[in-house]
């Protein structure tokens, strides 16, 4: 059984929701990525979404764009991200790690090599923002051959028939983008999420994580009442951006802990 499924099964038994922090690998520095991952787990993260930096992050707002730029300036690459996951696994063999990014760095490496490396280093899921199911056949054959879960996005604009199609391909969990916009935008509409989720549940039997636009503990708690996992990205990346090397671990830990406590009360 995959780490993702084990994690969500355990959470379900405890009637808890997953906290899924996102940050960009290599930001602010590659040497801080693994310590940040461990710190997040210690502060209550259930799954870690690790961003693979890309030169042209079209679905991201300014906060994550800047994180990508910082990481690329530090020499971060897909190869480097995979090595960091291997390093993380030396001390943590249970927390699921999902890589999130754009398709071209994977294309450049080759999906077969990438999927094999993911399995070797202990990556559990892969979310490729700009690869919809229509263009993903070969990619996902490679991922599944190596037991890696393809994670898909669903959006407020996704119609029923497409939800059904995604349900057939998705593994691990499904990531519902809670607003029409880029990451880090602030116009999340709780009632719209509340309306949409039952429609998704008709077809999606996997856990549903909700993200985009969750910027504080109050929102995280409200969203957690509606779904199985809460993804917080830009807010964490912002905390990294506003910290220095000496304070970043403590600051991010405090933020993740605050979110954890809020979600626990959902």
């Amino acid at each position: 059984m995959s780490r993702i499924q084990t994690t969500f099964d355990a959470l379900k038994q405890q009637n808890r929701r997953a906290l899924i922090p996102f940050f960009t690998a290599g930001d602010p520095h590659p040497s801080l990525t693994v310590p940040l991952m461990h710190a997040m787990v210690a502060a209550g993260a259930d799954v870690i979404e690790l961003g693979v930096p890309f030169s042209d992050p079209m679905a991201d707002g300014p906060t994550i764009q800047r994180a990508s730029e910082r990481a690329l300036k530090q020499g971060m690459s897909l190869r480097g991200v995979l090595n960091l996951v291997a390093e993380f696994r030396q001390q943590d063999n249970s927390t699921p790690v999902v890589l999130m990014g754009y398709g071209n760095p994977i294309e450049a490496m080759g999906w077969d090599v990438f999927a094999q490396r993911c399995a070797e280093v202990g990556v559990d899921g892969v979310l490729t923002v700009d690869f919809p199911p229509e263009e993903s056949h070969d990619a996902f054959e490679y991922l599944q051959a190596h037991g890696i879960d393809p994670i898909f996005l669903l959006a407020p604009t996704t119609e029923d028939a497409r939800v059904e199609q995604v349900a057939k391909l998705a593994r691990g969990y499904v990531y519902y983008v809670s607003l029409k916009g880029v990451t880090g935008a602030g116009n999340l509409d709780l009632s719209a999420i509340e309306q949409k989720l039952p429609q998704l549940r008709k077809h999606i039997k996997l856990p549903i994580g909700v993200g985009f636009g969750i910027r504080d503990a109050v929102t995280a708690q409200a969203v957690a009442k509606l779904c199985d996992g809460v993804v917080v990205g830009s807010r964490i990346v912002q905390e990294i951006e506003n910290s220095n090397d000496a304070t970043v671990i403590a600051n991010v830990s405090a933020l993740v802990n605050e979110l954890r406590l809020a979600i626990n009360q959902a």
Binding site: M58, A59, G103, V129, D130, F131, P132, E134, E135, F152, L153, L154, A155, P156, T157, T158, E159, R162, V177, K180, G181
Partner: peptide, 20 residues
């Protein structure tokens, strides 16, 4: 019909824009 010129083309977009 799916927008491909051989191996080229396609619709590599984020989910929010696929319906658009």
């Amino acid at each position: 019909s799916t927008g491909h010129f051989g191996q080229f083309g396609g619709i590599y977009m984020a989910e929010t824009l696929i319906p658009a």
